[in-house]
Design a protein around this nucleic acid. Structure first.
Lengths: 220, 220
DNA sequence: ATTCATTCGATACAAACTGAAACGAGACCT
DNA sequence: AGGTCTCGTTTCAGTTTGTATCGAATGAAT
């Protein structure tokens, strides 16, 4: 029944009835999330959960008939990401799966959200086309690194971002340039977007801290 | 009671009893997670949740007395990250908070709630843009350390703050300068904001105590 | 009232940090 | 293969910041 509900909601479900089967599926398919019943023949659900969690960060939702608090607590503390008591409403399970996927791959979901153009004080920046337009609608040429950095700022307005954080966001974590290169890019961006690059207001420096992007950013 | 439980578990909790209070706390403190009761005077819990979610990705756990599935579903679909039915075991709530924080931090992409600007005797100071404006609206240049210190004062008006406390607030706890450096910064701030820096009224010295910020401060 | 020890305010200075320009290696296009 | 563009590094000047110093103010004791 569960498989049907999930299929109806656009998921691909691979039902398994034992820990051994599960391992097999996990081994050959790309699994985004595990729905785990505590009651399974063979290895116990809690034990499976602990084992999975030890080896990966795969999202786990536990299902159990036993409604006692203590089970939920143990489940959550062992590392399950969510818990659904049985009997459950199938819409609730789907909602929880969606919520968990949304959270866990924050990366990808936000990526969709992030694909939308953003706007600040008249400027528009579009991650999809990788273009920047000034308040008059004129396109301002931006290099790749500049645009990435500006995007990182736009996605974290009003927050002090350290050079390390910015480097992470722009350079995707992989080791590369030294932190001071951020300064250079900030300087170059300022030349292009600040009304008075000598007295910047959009990207402010926080000494010993990094930089803050000050305007409010909204989707456009 | 909740506050006690959370404190016992190492969290810092700021209880509020209305949406307005909540906004105030969110504006001035660094909030990691919101526990939201559906039943609140004034704005409805679901509405608050929707509003919060519209502006930020702050983790939200909803608490409600109504145990019906439909409420949970709505709550989750609106964007709450988790749901706890009342009456709840306090250990379960703590476990859920831990689990949620763990997940969210793992994502390491928490969009913070934007800090609100503050005002005193005509002056405006905006933590988000890190700018200070005098009563005529003219921007007064402030260095990072000066602005941080003035912000610390604005967030604790009418209280005598020791140099040690101020150093903590400005320098973020990490060991650094000696206490007397606060004197120098206070002096520099006075030069910029006091009508008569020789006879300061806004930041008053408390001998053997520290300094007090005297004006009333409100959100602007 | 005077003296004395602290404490605080203001200035000066050195160290640390940031901004901007210059440079060169590498990527990309033709 | 040549040229242009981009980007990380380096360098140097300007700003910011912490500390030191000295004089003024405070408060207690004589």
């Amino acid at each position: 029944m569960l498989v049907d509900v999930l299929s109806d909601n656009g998921f691909t479900a691979s039902p398994v009835s034992s820990a051994i089967e599960m391992d097999a599926v996990l081994g050959r398919e790309n699994v985004d999330l595990v729905v785990l019943d505590i009651m399974l023949p063979g290895e116990d659900g809690l034990s499976i959960c602990r084992r999975l969690r030890a080896g990966s960060a795969i999202p786990i939702i536990m299902v159990t008939a036993r409604g006692e608090d203590i089970d939920r607590i143990i489940g959550l503390e062992i590392g399950a990401d969510d818990y659904v008591p049985k009997p459950f409403n199938s819409r609730e399970l789907v909602a929880r799966i969606r919520a968990l996927l949304r959270r866990v791959r924050g990366g990808r979901d936000i990526a969709q959200v992030r694909a939308r153009p953003l706007a600040f004080v008249g400027w528009r920046i579009d991650p999809a086309t990788r273009q920047l337009h000034d308040p008059e609608g004129v396109r301002i040429a931006m290099t790749s690194a500049e645009l990435d950095l500006l995007l990182a700022f736009c996605r974290n307005p009003g927050r002090v971002l350290s050079r390390e954080q910015l480097l992470d966001m722009v350079h995707g974590g992989l080791a590369g340039p030294i932190e001071r290169s951020i300064d250079v890019h900030v300087s170059r961006i300022r030349q292009k977007i600040e009304p008075d690059p000598g007295d910047p207001t959009l990207i402010r420096t926080v000494r010993l801290g990094g930089y803050v992007f000050t305007p409010t950013v909204e989707e456009a």
